[in-house]
Structures are given as structure tokens and as C-alpha cells.
């Protein structure tokens, strides 16, 4: 699959990554090359094959339904770039 510049810009927007306009062409080339390479899987017949969604065959254990964590607001906020009054701060999102 050859991706054009517009498609790469759309994927970048979906991934929330700002890509400068000047880099879109080169990136489209690199991504197209990788996608073309992985398309070799088209040659594999997978009819009737169930997708492998996990490695472990065993059913994961269930733990007791009780609170095991919490009350650590300050630790959680300690690494935030900006906080105020015990909250994360982001640019205004409501009009």
C-alpha cells in the first residue's frame, strides 16, 4: 500500500502526533515501504484460522473484588508538568 501525504497527515492526526509538513513526503515513503513489506502476509491462507489474541492458554486468575490501592493523590501528581489545588492543569476545553 502506497500512502500519500494526505493519508499520512490523517494517521498522524489520529495518533495525535504533530508532523511538520516538510517531513510528510519522506514519512509517506518510509511507511509505504514498511506496509508493502508486511503485505507479504497476503500470500498466507488463513481461512478457518482463529486469531491469536493472547499467548496464555490458561484463564487468568480472578482476584478478590476489593480495593487494593488509592489515597495517593500527591504521588500521582508529583510527576505532572502542571498542577493546581490537587488537579492536573490543561488548556481550557469548555467554551
Amino acid at each position: 500500500m502506497a500512502l500519500d501525504k494526505a493519508t499520512v497527515a490523517r494517521i498522524a492526526a489520529l495518533a495525535r502526533i504533530k508532523v511538520p509538513d516538510s517531513e510528510l513526503d519522506a514519512l509517506a515513503g518510509a511507511l509505504s515501504k514498511i506496509l508493502t513489506w508486511v503485505e507479504q502476509l497476503d500470500a498466507v491462507d488463513v481461512s478457518g484460522v482463529e486469531p491469536m489474541v493472547a499467548v496464555t492458554h490458561a484463564r487468568p486468575p480472578l482476584r478478590e473484588d476489593k480495593v487494593t490501592d488509592g489515597g495517593i493523590r500527591d504521588e500521582i501528581l508529583a510527576n505532572a508538568p502542571e498542577t493546581t489545588d490537587g488537579f492536573f492543569v490543561v488548556p481550557k476545553v469548555v467554551e
Partner: peptide, 10 residues
């Protein structure tokens, strides 16, 4: 993605 998961099973 789904195709790759199936090949992974194989």
C-alpha cells in the same frame, strides 16, 4: 491486524 493475528496463530 486481524490477518497478522491469524498468521501468529499458525
Amino acid at each position: 491486524y486481524l490477518k497478522a493475528q491469524k498468521v501468529r496463530a499458525l
